[in-house]
Amino acid sequence: MLANTTRALTEVQREQWAVDGYLQLEGALSPAEVDFFSKQIDRVRTQPGYEPAPSRLPRGHYAWVDHADPNPEAFMDRRDLLNYHQAFIDLIDRPRVFDLILDLMGPYIQFSMSQAIVRASTETFPGYTHTDGGEAQRAIRVTETSRPLAVKVMYLLTDVTEPDSGNFTIFPGSHLRPFPERAERIPNPHMPGAVPLLGKAGDAYVFPHAIWHGPSPNRSGKARKTILYNYCQMFMRPYDFGTPYATLFERCTARQRRLLGDLGHDFRPGDFFYAPEDQVALMTGTA
């Protein structure tokens, strides 16, 4: 279904991606890693960083804040995690997961965004459904035989084994059809066709920008913690940084540097459209 792939995907996964529009990976993180990243998220919320600012900025924009609510069970939405710990950098091209990303997207990709979301348990949050990438990207979909424009990996740091636990909820197959624009038709997590995914801490979901998705209500009595990493084609703008992420380069491998915008030379017209000659070898690890 996807041509010129590295064959990391099984045939079952290829079919699920083409038809349903998502994958679920069991045990993408080990129990020790789940515990480590969960504690890191608790630490991150006490430090400065980028958070939503709905009273000051439009939807989808983030502002620099001193800290989030220090309660580890409270809501948090923190962007740009890579500076907080080396482990967040190394998660960019984690083996097995990144192999699938390469197989789905091809080698001409970059890292775009890192995000930690904690969904508090509450009776007031109804959940919501959306697509990624803003209004313009919502209108762009690809066929089942095309490379995706942008793909996210969501790592579960908590068990989500019952509905209404802040589940990642999707409409299977919706990546191939338009998202409703009329207010009275906007999908929600409890509409027919919505599927709340169940999973264990350490599982991961892989999904494209165009699939209809979002969190369901969380009435489980405990917060749902997740880490999300976004990858996009090189010709697109990253979300977290406007120029190559040079402040991190000394802490990165050659492949990670490339994913963060290091093309090995100063900018010239055509960069990020026509890749360096070693792009394929660097991404696939054969350089």
Rank of each mutant, 00 (worst) to 15 (best):
A136T: 10
G285N: 06
L100Q: 05
F98C: 09
F179T: 13
G166L: 12
L25D: 04
P187T: 13
D262M: 02
E277F: 11
L228R: 06
N188P: 12
D203S: 08
S55W: 02
R96K: 07
T129E: 15
E181P: 13
L100A: 01
A8Q: 13
R78Y: 04
Q16M: 12
T145G: 14
Y62S: 00
C232E: 10
K222H: 15
I41S: 11
W64P: 11
V142R: 14
G106K: 02
H265T: 01
V206K: 00
H265F: 09
P215I: 05
R45F: 04
M283E: 13
L176Y: 14
S55G: 12
C252M: 15
F168G: 09
Q16H: 08
P238K: 08
Q115H: 01
I211W: 15
F37I: 04
S146P: 06
L100M: 14
P276A: 04
G270P: 00
R94H: 04
A63G: 15
A87L: 10
V195K: 13
G242C: 15
I41R: 09
R182A: 12
Y50I: 04
T243N: 09
V34R: 00
R94P: 02
V34W: 00
T158G: 11
R255A: 07
Q110G: 08
S112H: 06
H130Q: 13
L23H: 00
A223W: 06
W212Y: 10
H213R: 11
E26C: 13
R7H: 10
I92Q: 02
K200H: 11
A68R: 03
P215A: 11
W64V: 15
I41E: 03
F273L: 15
V280Q: 02
L2A: 08
G270C: 00
Y205Q: 09
M191Y: 12
F36R: 01
L260H: 02
L82D: 03
I211N: 09
L104T: 00
N83M: 12
E73F: 03
A204N: 00
P215K: 08
A223P: 03
A18F: 13
Y231F: 11
P180V: 08
P172W: 13
G285W: 07
V160Y: 03
L82T: 01
L263S: 07
R96V: 05
I101E: 03
R79I: 02
A246C: 07
V206Y: 01
R255T: 07
C252I: 04
P244S: 02
G214W: 12
F125I: 10
A74S: 08
E11T: 14
H190R: 12
A120Q: 14
N218A: 05
F168K: 11
D262Q: 02
R96Q: 06
T247H: 15
F75Y: 14
A136H: 06
R182Y: 01
D240S: 04
A204H: 01
T131P: 08
D271L: 01
P217C: 10
F168M: 08
P208R: 06
P31L: 03
R224H: 10
G106H: 01
L57Y: 13
L282C: 05
A201W: 03
A275V: 05
L248W: 08
T10W: 14
Q40H: 04
G199S: 01
T124V: 15
E73K: 10
G193C: 08
Y155F: 15
S55M: 06
